[in-house]
Deep mutational scan, measured.
Amino acid sequence: MALNTPQITPTKKITVRAIGEELPRGDYQRCPQCDMLFSLPEINSHQSAYCPRCQAKIRDGRDWSLTRLAAMAFTMLLLMPFAWGEPLLHIWLLGIRIDANVMQGIWQMTKQGDAITGSMVFFCVIGAPLILVTSIAYLWFGNRLGMNLRPVLLMLERLKEWVMLDIYLVGIGVASIKVQDYAHIQAGVGLFSFVALVILTTVTLSHLNVEELWERFYPQRPATRRDEKLRVCLGCHFTGYPDQRGRCPRCHIPLRLRRRHSLQKCWAALLASIVLLLPANLLPISIIYLNGGRQEDTILSGIMSLASSNIAVAGIVFIASILVPFTKVIVMFTLLLSIHFKCQQGLRTRILLLRMVTWIGRWSMLDLFVISLTMSLINRDQILAFTMGPAAFYFGAAVILTILAVEWLDSRLLWDAHESGNARFDD
């Protein structure tokens, strides 16, 4: 018995066209964080690309023209004298008006014999932002004059995390709450300039795509075929072959399989920071003279006294001054041990922890910024005066060393310790 099946006739004509040209192939790229070699397709503007294995951002879609970056830099340069030299806060102490600005706080630190601690604050609040705007201006002028731009481009990517104007702005709020127990506070004209400078700096850093600047100024022929001998440069993120001198053909720094002496430098910085954190938390970090009496505060006791007036601000200072430094030390110690013992479990967790400490590390400088600003506000000789204690130097040095330890660690070593050939990683 035959089955009668109805015929289905399409209502619209289906047209099949042959592909007349070869589909576009992607360029081969190595991930600078996990060293995976993959094919990167062509990316349009405002599109980002991520590593298929570790999800690290390979290409950032946010990109401004150099002219727009230069305009932002010149605007920031105009704001800087007002943000640093004009009063941020006014207080009335014992019937006398006192003005506080950024430069005055750094000068008070240096004047009291601790120039190293003052230079830490100076670099993060004044030096690094000033280098940022002058570097962008150098790129703008240098591109037109045919100057060598490689050193500036190499420095810009590392400079971003040292620009800490946003953290200093939080420190202004913390210092205001600490001082309000002794005097009446009012915002100064410099505060508005400083807030504007923070906003412009944040926007500029978020749109400063150094890798795209490398592509514009020093374009290189990408690798179009897969080759395990391809290496990625950690300076400019170019994937290719080393030249005859073993250097990256684009930025001219040595092109090595792994960062040289990464573990040794990381261990040295980490152990030194552990040693410095002990006096930083045991010795007094601030000293207040009130009517001839002397009151010393460690980091913890200062947080407890701050909690009596504002528990939320005390929580912020606790996280930045105690929780973050010790968390960074514990995480980095764990990561280094996992590399030495070739741990194969929990790779995803370790990668996330490394990215976390990379982002939060700079916030530990908050305590030094609060001390710097408070020193310029309260300084009335023996009637009422505020000065920093010996722990300030140890704390600042420990924070900087932990930042350097994270920067010096080559994250690809975590993958080397893991089993080879993993296309995915999980716990």
Rank of each mutant, 00 (worst) to 15 (best):
T387I: 10
W140H: 04
I199C: 14
S305F: 08
A391S: 12
L23P: 04
A307Q: 14
R256I: 09
A71W: 11
A268P: 01
D181L: 01
S48C: 13
I383H: 02
I319L: 12
V133C: 04
Q29F: 10
R150H: 04
R30K: 12
V329K: 07
G246I: 04
G235H: 04
L347S: 13
S411Y: 06
M155W: 03
K229P: 13
Y289E: 01
F192G: 06
R25M: 09
L352H: 12
L159A: 03
F123D: 07
M120H: 03
I285A: 03
L384D: 00
I43E: 09
K178R: 03
T15W: 12
R424W: 10
T75N: 14
R362M: 02
H237M: 08
S308Y: 12
L205Q: 11
E211P: 13
V179R: 01
H90N: 11
C51I: 00
L337K: 12
A100V: 10
R380Y: 06
W107E: 14
A307K: 14
E296T: 05
N209Y: 05
D367K: 00
A187V: 07
R245D: 07
L159P: 01
K328V: 00
G293L: 06
F425K: 15
S206W: 15
R294L: 10
L93T: 01
T387F: 07
D381F: 08
T358H: 09
L78M: 09
R30T: 10
S48Q: 14
I43S: 08
E86V: 06
L335E: 10
D99V: 08
C31F: 00
I285E: 00
A196Q: 08
I351F: 14
L306G: 00
Q180H: 06
R250H: 04
K178Q: 05
L354I: 13
R294Q: 15
L413P: 07
L191I: 04
R259F: 07
N44L: 07
D166C: 15
K160A: 09
W84L: 09
L40G: 12
L154P: 03
R226C: 12
G105D: 02
A83D: 04
I274A: 08
E407C: 07
I351L: 11
T387D: 03
A223W: 07
A391E: 03
P279R: 05
W64F: 14
V170D: 03
T298Q: 08
E215V: 14
T387Y: 06
A385P: 00
T239W: 01
L323K: 08
L401V: 11
L409H: 06
S48E: 15
S309G: 08
G26S: 09
I58Q: 10
M103P: 08
L94R: 00
T204G: 06
N422F: 14
K229D: 06
A417S: 11
M164W: 06
I299Y: 01
K229I: 09
R225P: 05
S119N: 02
Q55D: 09
A398L: 03
F194G: 10
